[in-house]
Every structure is written in C-alpha cells, then in structure tokens.
C-alpha cells in the first residue's frame, strides 16, 4: 500500500492525521457548507445577500418539505433508480468486455477502435441531440426509460472502455502469460484473472457512471416528456422559476438528490482494497 500505512499502534499519530484531513475537508467543502446553510435559510435572507452568515431564521423543515410538495420528487427519485441501476450494470459488463479485448488481444485496427471509443466521448451533447432523438423515435423507445437506459449505456461505454482498458493494461503481463500457458480460454482468463484484480477499478467506475447518469438532465428532457418517466434532476429543475428561483429550496433539493451517489461511494469503498500480489491469484 502507498502511502505507507500509519501503524495501528501509533494512536496519537492516527488521531492527528484524521484531524488534519478533517481540516482539509472543511476548507475543501466550503461551497458545500454554503449549500447546506442555504438549504435551511429563508429566501428573504438570500435576497438580502446573506449568503455566508449564520441563518437568522431556520427554515429547515419548510424548505425540505417544500421540495416534496412542489414536485413529485419521490416518483422522480424512483424513476432515477430504475434508469440508473440497469445502466450502470450494463456499462460495467460491456466495458469490462471491450476493455479486456482491447488491452489483451491486440489486432489490426484495435487501436483505431480504442481511439473511436475515446473520441466518441468528446462530442457536445447539444449537437447529438437531434440524431439521437430520431434514433430513439425509430426504435420506438422515445419517452420511455429505455431510451435513457440505452443512451446512457452507449455513451458511458466510451469513457468506461477507456477506463477498463487502461486498468487491465496496467496489470502485470506475467499473469496473462501464465494463464495462457495453462491453456485457459479468454473467457476463463477474464473470469479468474481480470475480474478479481480490477475490483477497485470496477468499484470506481460504478461510482462514476452512477454519478454521471444520476445527474443527467439534458438527455432526460430530450428523450422523454412525460412526468411518469422523468428522473430526479427534473424534479430539481422544476423548482427553478421563470423569473426567480428560490435557491434555498433548490439547495435543499440539491442535497437530497446528491445523497444516493454519496451513499453509493461510501458503500463501494469496501471494494477499494489494495493487494495486487501474484500470490492472490489462484491458478
């Protein structure tokens, strides 16, 4: 492990270390603290320019209930889960496959395919909007959650392939030579060598794609129009006004919407276990 772990018995050192990191986090999250303070402030205070001071009047309950009263937040939340979870699973599977092949089975043109995956990520969404929408209409998926699932899987597969290819390429080549010498098929190599070793990478990828898909709003408005299939970001944005927005309520919604990815990150950390050693691989 790097950096060298602080030994378990160095109690004082450990406490000091955590304290120091906490301080860094506090500075780092100053803008988040502002969002949190705003979410318990009254709108009048914001209008008066009290962005950073302590709230004079606490509107915690009012603001957070307003989020659920003004929009069908819970239904949107459920829709988001229905869209995001299958998409993430799809991305993880497809990109593990593509990343594995592109890193370990070079063929003529494999670099070109890799470059296409990387390059396809770069196009700004607004331009792809109409071609993608027309495709979904042709497929009969327009205004369903499947349109969003198909699009998100396709789009994130580009980034995820880059990600998985590079992680698999970083694994020591001897592992693969050994497996091949024992006559393992590509599918066996994938299952018994690659997947166990890239667990931290898969965990990180799951977190990132979950976050990106969860936070998408643009595609939700391009590919759907019924409230029955819209994701949670639509609920958040519905709180914004034509002329004016109650930023205290938007902030409360922001905190609520941000919870699942943060929880996901917290839970996924148990897969961030280092220990890539030759001995760990059975075979």
């Amino acid at each position: 492990m790097y950096p060298r772990p602080i030994p378990e018995d160095a109690k004082i050192q450990r406490v000091l270390y955590v304290g120091g990191v906490t301080l860094v986090v506090a500075l780092w999250l100053l803008p988040l603290i502002a969002v949190m303070l705003t979410s318990i402030r009254s709108n009048e205070e914001l209008m008066a320019g009290n962005y950073w001071g302590w709230p004079q009047k606490f509107s915690l309950v009012e603001n957070y209930t307003a989020v659920f009263q003004q929009t069908a937040m819970l239904r949107f939340f459920l829709n988001s889960l229905l869209i995001t979870i299958p998409s993430v699973i799809g991305v993880l599977i497809l990109s593990t496959l593509t990343g594995f092949v592109l890193s370990r089975y070079p063929f003529r043109g494999s670099n070109l395919i890799f470059a296409l995956f990387v390059g396809g990520n770069f196009l700004p969404a607004q331009i792809m909007m109409i071609p993608v929408r027309d495709l979904m209409v042709r497929l009969g998926l327009y205004d369903t959650i499947y349109a969003l699932i198909v699009f998100h899987i396709a789009f994130q597969t580009g980034f995820a392939t880059l990600f998985m290819r590079n992680f698999i390429a970083a694994l020591p080549g001897e592992l693969f030579q050994a497996a091949r010498a024992e006559g393992a098929s590509p599918a066996q190599v994938l299952r018994h060598v690659v997947v166990p070793l890239v667990r931290p990478a898969l965990a990180a990828l799951a977190i990132l794609t979950f976050t990106f898909i969860w936070n998408d709003y643009f595609w939700a408005i391009v590919l759907t129009q019924s409230d029955a299939v819209k994701p949670v970001t639509a609920g958040l944005n519905n709180l914004r006004g034509e002329w004016t927005s109650a930023w205290n309520i938007v902030s409360a919604a922001t905190i609520f919407v941000a919870l699942p990815p943060v929880v996901m990150f917290f839970l996924m950390q148990k897969h961030f276990i280092s220990g890539l050693t030759m001995g760990a691989v059975k075979g």
Binding site: L97, L116, L135, F151
Partner: peptide
Amino acid sequence: LLLPGLVLFGLVILAA
C-alpha cells in the same frame, strides 16, 4: 466479447 459494446456505441454515438 468486443461486439456488443462496439455495436451499441457505434449505433448510437458514432452514428450521431
């Protein structure tokens, strides 16, 4: 193994 990802990506993103 490569095909599903490539087809989907090609059909949606590259075509666009």
